[in-house]
Nucleic acid binder design. Structure first.
Length: 492
RNA sequence: GGGCCGUUAGCUCAGUUGGCAGAGCAUCGGACUUUUAAUCCGAGGGUCGCAGGUUCGAUCCCUGCACGGCCCA
């Protein structure tokens, strides 16, 4: 970053000398390329001996006196350039030698193969299209320092091929999901990010302010309540892929802003959403692995349907030995959780939902390596989900787990406006008791339900976590281009 | 919020049981017209994260802070 390093100063002097001679490297508005580096590599047979032009960044220079090899990197890969004094002439060859690693150049010349078989352009013309004043990271090890990799992601992308591959995969994964849904008649929509009342998840929001309306607004924590309004409006199949914002801590599994896919289908239930999940996630995997199997952190994972289903309370019983029989008795549940080994301090004064979540996080989740639908969440922690017909204390809800990670949330949507109001009131009570993540009451959403929402299945998928799984990354930051970091304080 | 670890040249990293700070790549000078982590010869480059403390002397030991990483909550 230093602007006083010897390398920076030398490059600055070169730039000023060029400008002084009327050759401003930053004066070019475009450059006509005939091919990308990959096209040259792949189509050498047809292109041999033909004049071609490419543009990119100089990432290696091997000078041999009167002849110099260089590697040019573009979006697709790299291509070798060969500059010779007897081709370019003394003066232009000397200019060529004044180029630095990192400079952006355009090159034209004939394509040939060296005696070692490397596809190479014999440089006839070259144009400096942008001067790099800062030196590049080291060529062999790349950029390793995680802080610099995130703060200066452009350097990470330049220096580490695998990082580019991750974000290419991310794009393919999202495209696969979007294509799958649109091909099946789902309407892609965009709903408000700035909301007067937030909802659709248990989370604390970011607040912001609208000056002209003189009102506080929230950044959405989920698009759910707006997408359900569209179902009420008769759209029947809708989805949104977008950013949501949750005002919570940052760790290997959480970033304050992340990408969610939510899909809603009228006249469908949560079992239909299981099928949709299997197909969507399977399609994402196909898009990057060409099949339904992949490896995450050493575990071979098979996404072939049908995925395992297990009821939440059964899973807790199976993996922790805790039998939660009476969902009304929070004190008993707390005692059982403490006996099972959960830190009593963390459970003090916590509601049942929290205790269940702790048991699940600690004992169940790490075991759900193969894709699993955990079903039948208690109504207390599912304020937007429809009750099960055969058990009013449980909801027709599931969360999919893969590789030990929770990757989504889905249910048969609660469409009874009277029950919805009661659920919101229970949330208000929870909030009054100190639960800062409880849902606020949304009168306008209840009013919308009062006009009649068909039975509907809804699904939310955490795109970042799925990308993390499908690209075998141990950390969410590796699949988010610019993860949130504290700013560097340059003040002394 | 707690614990552990890290911060040394542009980058990747050594190192000093407290006594002038090291390598590779990069940079600069020289040689070299088919190399590809080019090679060979030579050179420059450091407030050792920041602020205090201990000490004759601190990059090293201690305290605090900042930023980051991992784990836990």
């Amino acid at each position: 970053m230093s602007e006083t390093s010897d390398q920076y100063q030398r490059r600055l002097e070169k730039l000023q000398e060029l400008k002084h001679k009327g050759q401003d490297p930053f004066g070019h508005h475009s450059y006509q390329r005939t091919h990308s580096s990959r096209q040259l590599q792949e189509n050498f047979a047809e292109l041999e001996g033909q004049p071609v032009s490419v543009a990119g960044r100089l990432i290696a220079i091997r000078s041999h006196g009167k002849s110099t090899f260089a590697d040019l990197q573009d979006a697709d890969g790299t291509i070798q350039i060969h500059a010779r004094v007897d081709v370019l002439g003394e003066e232009r060859y000397e200019h060529c030698c004044g180029l630095d690693l990192g400079d952006i150049v355009g090159v034209s010349g004939e394509l040939f193969k060296t005696r070692t078989g490397e596809v190479t352009i014999r440089c006839k013309e070259f144009t400096l299209l942008a001067k790099a004043l800062q030196p590049l990271p080291e060529k062999f090890h790349g950029l390793q320092n995680p802080e610099l990799r995130y703060r200066q992601r452009y350097l990470d992308l330049l220096a580490n091929d695998k990082v580019r591959e991750i974000f290419t995969a991310r794009s393919r994964i999202i495209k696969a999901a979007r294509d799958y849904l649109t091909e099946r008649g789902f309407l892609e929509v965009e709903t408000p990010v700035l909301q007067p009342i937030y909802g659709g998840a248990a989370a604390r929001p970011f607040t912001t302010y609208h000056n002209a309306l003189d009102m506080q607004l929230y950044m959405r924590i989920a698009p759910e309540l707006y997408l359900k309004r569209l179902i009420i409006g008769g759209c029947e199949k809708v989805f949104e892929i977008g950013r949501v914002f949750r005002n919570e801590g940052i760790d290997t599994r959480h970033n304050p802003e992340f990408t969610i896919l939510e899909a809603y289908q009228a006249y469908a239930d949560y079992e239909d959403m299981m099928t949709l999940t299997e197909n969507l996630v399977g399609g994402m995997c196909q898009a990057v692995h060409g099949g339904l199997t992949f490896t995450y952190q050493g575990n071979d994972i098979d996404l072939s349907p049908p995925w395992r289903r297990v009821q939440l309370l059964e899973a807790i019983s199976e993996y922790s030995g805790v039998e939660l029989t009476d969902l009304e008795d929070t004190d008993a549940a707390r005692r059982q959780a403490i006996e099972a080994g959960i830190d009593p301090e963390t459970l003090a004064d916590q509601p049942l939902g929290y205790i269940i979540e702790k048991l699940c996080d600690r004992f169940v989740q790490p075991n759900l390596i193969q894709p699993t639908f955990m079903t039948d969440y208690p109504v207390e922690i599912s304020p937007l989900a429809k009750r099960k017909a055969d058990d009013r204390q449980l909801t027709a809800r599931f969360e999919p787990f893969i590789g030990g990670e929770e990757v989504g949330n889905a249910f048969s949507e609660l469409n009874d406006p009277l029950d919805q109001r009661q659920r919101f009131e229970a949330q208000a009570a929870a909030r009054a008791a100190g639960d800062e993540e409880a849902h606020p009451l949304d009168e306008e959403f209840i009013q919308a339900l009062e006009y009649g929402m068909p039975p509907t299945g809804g699904l939310g998928l955490g795109i970042d976590r799925l990308v993390m799984l499908l690209t075998d990354q141990p950390n969410l930051r590796e699949v988010i281009l610019f993860p949130l970091l504290r700013p560097v304080d340059d003040q002394p």
